[in-house]
Design a protein around this nucleic acid. Structure first.
Lengths: 350, 350
DNA sequence: GTGAAAGCGCTAACAA
DNA sequence: TTGTTAGCGCTTTCAC
């Protein structure tokens, strides 16, 4: 094989045998060298690495996975990668995973159970070693599928009573409290909350956290100022419009997510209301775009990097040294306030 | 890894033998059934599918790839998935690929050659059947790597003289011409262009297309109104600021990308200039956020769906029936104008 | 420390 | 039409 001056002729892709032949060792030695086995003598290892380089050889991961039983692939399921919340999450997860020698398989569920089922199937076929389900409330359909296969799984805000399953808890309370305190310090007392859809577990949590934060700040929550929106731009616009119909109006607004806040910004702009002079607005998530709105959005940051790190850590632990204790399978990700330009003192009339 | 006859306890994940045993057929029949071979009798096929379902069996793609020599994985390299241009591209590509029985491996180069090299290596190890390099101008480092491995590759706006390489050409001209005509029709004659960094091939193309469009519209291009920015928000703000220092000012602005336009929007807002009353602004890309700016951005849409479709098609053709002709390896993606709220009549003073 | 050889789960000849 | 069998490229005993 190693004949004829090892130039890049139109030969076949080199395999472990090609390397072994060129380095004049057995394929076992090549394998050991690649996998960093300490028993290989330096001399042979050097020859092997040289051959590998010269042949431009890459080990075939399929063969590797097949024989070792480990694919070193982790799956990530998000609701939709075009939702601005997810790209950064995916990116961080991938970086961490790759740095730790894992490959990542990404899929969007598009909030469609059949799509979800299908992408879990694909992941199972590729023999992923663990799956991070970052869909925030559409988990049910995959649970059985995954659990049946005894694969480690980590869920955001969802508890699964299975020793292979971990949970990531999001601590919205701290960020929401910081937001309310920030507003209170500016002089606001009339604070409204544009909630998310009540079918979402996380939306309800956020709303409750808001109530608690108000109480902590000795502020009164007006029932009519808590409005259920739907986490979209249009929802935010509608929420704002509804608030405008009220006799008594708030001077500040905390929104259950950034898109809602951006909707408020737009609706206010169209009504010639100035933010923050006439109305202060706070978002939640800190999507990349929050910094580019007019004015830049003050928001409660939910760090996607932290979330990704927690998800990866949860999975790795389960893969490498399964934790029996339920507590050990729980991870907490916190939130924090990012003050930008959409909050200020309340208007004079208030 | 001792072989223990054909055990079939519920503990281990079922393999093709398990299915064969349960369906009382040979593993070849199971394989044929799964792969839709027409020779299998209905009766046996039914038994096989039943066993598959009952066992919750998923074929192991690693074994499949190994023996068939086909991984059915396509690689996509983007510059950075958190760049708003890419998520939709990735999403579309994945949808199309999955619908056609391919899996997708996504990687970000982060504009770092060593990261890029590393992710190509990982793709090669996973034996991808083709790679779409959507980095728009950072291709060089991967070219040799990929070309040496004789793998189909498709590049955006980059020609590679290799029978395995296809190119996607982006027709900015049509969209830019539409934008200039739209502006001209509104009454603008004083139109500036905030260009991208000249090191980017595509930025220069866009600038030239703008000049041509102006000429076609019988409008004069003022040299001082063509400003090299850097495709970022800050760059757009700086470009706007520079324009303000000029004696003669434009009434409308075409930007080389959306982020630049958004920077202009912000800078104008801070200077209390109203868009579009005082200044009309046009972007390019139509990132998801363009529709959420204040005012919503009129922009030249570069369809990521079309781009994804072209990239997949190029790859598939090369994988399934390689095209020799250079022309057949070229794909064109066009652009179009999306009129929103950031363009209007020129101000009275003009 | 090194090599020979037995499979990992599957597909594709080739037989029957 | 169905079954038998030889590998795909690699890791991992087990000898030496």
């Amino acid at each position: 094989m190693a004949r004829k001056g090892t130039r890049t002729t139109a030969t076949k892709t080199p395999d472990i045998r090609t390397v072994a032949a060129m380095a004049k060792v057995s394929i076992a030695t090549v394998s050991r060298t690649i996998n960093g086995s300490p028993v290989v003598s330096e001399k042979l290892a050097k020859r092997v690495w040289q051959a590998i380089e010269q042949l431009n050889y890459y080990p075939n991961t399929h063969a590797r996975s097949l024989v070792s039983g480990r694919s070193r692939i982790l799956g990530v399921i998000v609701e939709n990668i075009t939702n601005p919340f997810f790209p950064e999450l995916v990116q961080s997860f991938e970086e961490i995973a790759v740095a730790n020698g894992y490959e990542v398989m990404i899929s969007s569920s598009n909030s469609d159970p059949s799509v979800l089922t299908n992408c879990v199937r694909r992941m199972l076929e590729r023999k992923v070693e663990g799956v991070a389900v970052m869909t925030f409330g559409e988990e049910e359909p995959v649970l059985d599928q995954l659990a049946n296969h005894d694969i480690p799984i980590v869920l955001a805000e969802f508890h699964l009573d299975d020793p292979k399953a971990s949970t990531i808890l999001l601590d919205y309370a701290s960020g929401i409290r910081a937001a309310v305190e920030h507003l209170a310090k500016l002089g606001h007392t009339r604070i409204a909350f544009l909630a998310g859809p009540h079918k979402l577990h996380s939306a309800i949590t956020r709303e409750n956290d808001f109530r608690n934060a108000m109480e902590s700040a000795s502020l009164t929550v007006q029932k009519q100022w808590i409005i259920e929106c739907d986490h979209t731009l249009k929802g935010g616009m509608a929420g704002f419009a509804h608030l405008q119909t009220l006799e008594a109006r708030p001077t500040a607004l905390v929104c259950s997510n950034d898109m809602t806040a951006i909707g408020v910004l737009r609706a206010a702009y169209m009504k010639d209301m100035r933010v923050p002079q006439d109305l202060s607005v706070v978002g939640l998530d800190d999507i990349d775009f929050a910094e580019f709105t007019l004015p830049p959005l003050t928001t409660i940051r939910l760090s996607r990097t932290d979330l990704a790190r927690a998800a990866f850590e949860a999975l790795r632990q389960q893969v490498e040294q399964p934790k029996q204790s339920k507590l050990e399978r729980e991870f907490l990700v916190s939130t924090s306030l990012v003050v930008r330009g959409s909050t200020g003192k309340p208007p004079a009339w208030a």
